[in-house]
Design a protein around this nucleic acid. Structure first.
Lengths: 320, 320
DNA sequence: ATGAAAGCGCTAACAG
DNA sequence: CTGTTAGCGCTTTCAT
């Protein structure tokens, strides 16, 4: 058509504030231009961080994102994904609390990408928890700790399994005892509660499932007058945004949260572009962050000598 | 129709995994069943908290929510709302960084509800920052402080204006000096930076725009060997989820974050149900949270006597 | 090259 | 009260 016509049409379109209807478009094309993201709990700072990366990357690719909070509830999680499936091109499930069969089932409804979960035939982003855990154990071993507690997180969580795996491997390598406690909810309050169990077991070091719990432990230890890190060393996981500023005594295994969100979207876009393409899995590294205050433990404690009460000699939770 | 027919139809529908297409539906009905939420920064814990409430309430009403992060960028914020407008029934803008004319303009594109912002003709949820600030000032006055610093937040933020307003009122009531510093970005890092300015001004108490900044101040004060609260009292705002667990020295003005998200959605639903109805504004209260460690300041400091260096006598930032 | 028409999946308004 | 039809706003295909 004529140049002039084009210009005029565009001008009028602008004047009438014309905006193409995405609904109508998606009706014909079959694509929505939307992506869904499901998280177990927005109150856990881990997920907003991931979300931030995901949202940013999605926008760069001209996708909008639907957000849903499954409230740590598998039934709700299922329902949310199903509902989303109707109006998105694919969904990213973060730290899914669903069983593998359930996830396989959802795969029939939409293109799935998992974050923090490994399922056959499904693309996913993984954070190298096991390696991070080995670093943490190595660090504590170097400080002289011989008995290390682990406060386990959600049972169905992949990262919890990985962290336990890393723990056992680390304990074996360094010939120290790893005592698993829990599982606990991945919250500050659960950490406070767990702190008492740690003291009761006469542990000199404890690794929590995540920073939230670790902060809970630190808080409770402070309340009980226990000096950190002289009497007990505490290590957390994830390095959530406020972890460091929250408590300088917190050593933590840092995971790349925002990048993981970005990568999840990237994997999803890839799947959408090449529907038949092979499934990809991306593993992102962990890094131990040792803060100023993590000093060596007193030699008395370091040998694992009970300080408060005698430990039972047949301890069922000792792993190695 | 016959009972049997109905049953068989439903059975087949289920068998074929039939799901009505929302795109097609919205094409005919003109409604999408979606709501948009825009926040300035997901990295600020304030917003995930609000978001959690909003998402939960929206879901209860069978709405899905689109999420967008405007990265504290007004241009981007505009664009995001415009884009959302095409596929939602309404949008909630949290702590908008836009000018009033810009917001009026957006109102033509979609139904708007504002959180933390007052604009004529637009429904909104407000958090009573001014009253919270007066409580904070009253508290510090009771502890004997005579010179109080305020670390201002984003210039275009309604709550920042309200907090300044409350500050001036409080300073007048209690006949004390309020020194405004900033503005600063509402971040931990900015708080660290501001702490030095506070010390340079010989202030015995400082109220930060929000908890993030307050934690930054506390962190920097600790690094510089200043004892809190004996030498300096620090007050934050919002009571974000990790504030309390982060630092027991943090006194904070608590705002109902999750409820505010819920209320925002409620106002939006109301607007959608009665399109012509009158605009509503909801004001939610604030509550001062004084933690264990907020003791009185030494009497020397309490009289406002400079401790580190002489303060210039013509201080332009002194409000009253 | 440009323009007309079919149809995506649904709902609303209609006719039977 | 059931069953049929028009049309929402686009894209894609087909005819001109």
């Amino acid at each position: 058509m004529r140049e002039e016509t084009l210009v005029r049409v565009l001008a009028v379109a602008e004047e009438l504030r014309y905006r193409p209807s995405r609904a109508a478009r998606s009706l014909t094309t079959g694509r929505t231009g939307n992506i869904g993201v499901v998280v177990p709990d927005l109150g856990n700072p881990f997920f907003p961080a991931v979300l931030k990366g995901a949202q940013a990357r999605a926008r760069e690719a001209n996708y909008s994102v639907f957000l849903a909070d499954s409230e740590e509830n598998p039934r709700l999680e299922m329902e949310l994904v199903r509902e989303m499936a109707r109006q998105v091109d694919g969904v990213v499930i973060c730290s899914s609390r669903l069983s593998e069969p359930q996830l396989q089932q959802l795969r029939r409804d939409t293109t799935l990408v998992l974050l923090n979960r490994r399922v056959a035939g499904t693309s996913g982003v993984l954070l190298d928890s096991a390696r991070g855990m080995r670093q943490a154990v190595e660090h504590l071993a170097a400080l002289g700790h011989r008995r290390i507690g682990f406060l386990a997180g959600p049972v169905h969580s992949w990262s919890n399994r990985e962290r336990r795996r890393g723990l056992r491997a680390g304990a074996r390598s360094h010939a120290l005892d790893a005592i698993e406690l829990g599982s606990f909810a991945p919250t500050f309050e659960a950490g406070q509660h767990a702190a008492d169990l740690v003291l009761a077991r006469d542990l000199t070091a404890v690794i929590a499932y995540n920073d939230l719990m670790a902060l809970g432990v630190l808080s409770r230890l402070a309340d009980r007058g226990v000096v950190v890190p002289d009497e007990v060393s505490v290590v957390g996981f994830d390095n959530i945004p406020m972890a460091g500023m929250a408590n300088p005594h917190l050593t933590t295994v840092a995971l790349p949260l925002e990048p993981s969100g970005r990568v999840a979207i990237e994997l999803l876009l890839e799947q959408l572009a090449h529907p038949g393409a092979s499934v990809h899995e991306e593993m992102l590294g962990a890094q131990l962050i040792v803060r100023a205050s993590t000093g060596p433990v007193p030699s008395g404690s370091a040998t694992g000598t009970p300080r408060r009460r005698a430990a039972g000699n047949a301890d069922p939770a000792i792993v190695k």
